[in-house]
């Protein structure tokens, strides 16, 4: 897949959580670049900061320090409403626990991010929803509620929802974590297909089998990006 320039660039990103008098350094000076059309996997042991990094990449959270450029624009200090707007237009989320809304049908769930986009006509929304569901082979379940679907089907709907807004990047947080291996593989194939069609994907996973689907793998350990060799060494030291 051709690289079409830098989509995300972060420099010296830090995130510190304060609880009472305890400071927890979730991220410590992370540098990362993601190019358009790239399929990146972030892995690392539990608590290494990968979900925190993903939240900051998705503008769900703000960094304590450092720079974050999205599409060349600094986004680390935007207002809540600007972050909402960018999240809605540029980012598509795929969660481990699908996070579909039980009261809404499949169609309504997929349409949801489009309803927050000002000025989009209803017909346009319906068209995009249909296309997104067709891409994940769930168009025939439009009228169903999430509870009427299997886990694999729910995650495909979640992927369709992430795609419907034509985002610049799909952020997937352990997308197979709640699925059996067969459905997990199916979802990974779906992401691979999307990547082949041009989508930029950043996926958090701790499963090396699924990380292999990505073009590039970034390892995190104690809030820092490390090489694979460093990761092995640090893990062994920690276990020792």
């Amino acid at each position: 897949m051709a690289q079409n320039g830098t989509l995300i660039e972060i420099e010296d990103l830090t995130k510190i959580f304060y609880t009472d008098e305890v400071e927890t350094h979730a991220l410590s000076g992370v540098h990362l670049t993601i190019s358009r059309g790239e399929y990146l996997a972030m892995s690392g042991p539990s608590g290494c900061g990968k979900s925190t990094l993903l939240s900051i990449l998705g503008l769900l959270d703000t960094p304590t320090g450092g720079k974050y450029l999205l599409n060349g624009q600094p986004v680390e200090n935007l207002s809540f409403s600007d972050r909402s707007r960018i999240r809605n237009q540029e980012i598509g989320f795929i969660f481990q626990s699908f996070n579909l809304i039980g009261d809404l049908t499949v169609e309504e769930n997929v349409e949801l991010p489009l309803t927050y986009r000002a000025g989009m006509a209803s017909a346009e929304r319906k068209k995009r929803v249909k296309e997104a569901l067709e891409r994940v082979n769930m168009a025939h379940r439009m009228r169903h509620y999430p509870a009427q679907l299997s886990g694999g089907q729910q995650q495909r709907v979640a992927v369709a929802r992430a795609l419907a807004g034509s985002p610049s990047i799909l952020l997937a947080d352990e997308p197979t974590g709640n699925l059996d291996s067969k459905n997990g593989e199916a979802v990974m194939h779906l992401l691979a297909d999307l990547h082949r069609e041009g989508s930029t994907i950043c996926m958090v996973t701790h499963d090396p089998r699924f990380a292999k689907h990505a073009q590039r793998e970034v390892h995190l350990f104690d809030g820092k990006v490390v090489s694979e060799q460093e990761l092995v060494k640090l893990t062994e030291e920690a276990e020792a």
Binding site: G58, S84, P113
Partner: peptide, 12 residues
Amino acid sequence: GIRMALGAARAD
């Protein structure tokens, strides 16, 4: 939270 992740603003 999901709605906000999908782009809902506080006003929404």
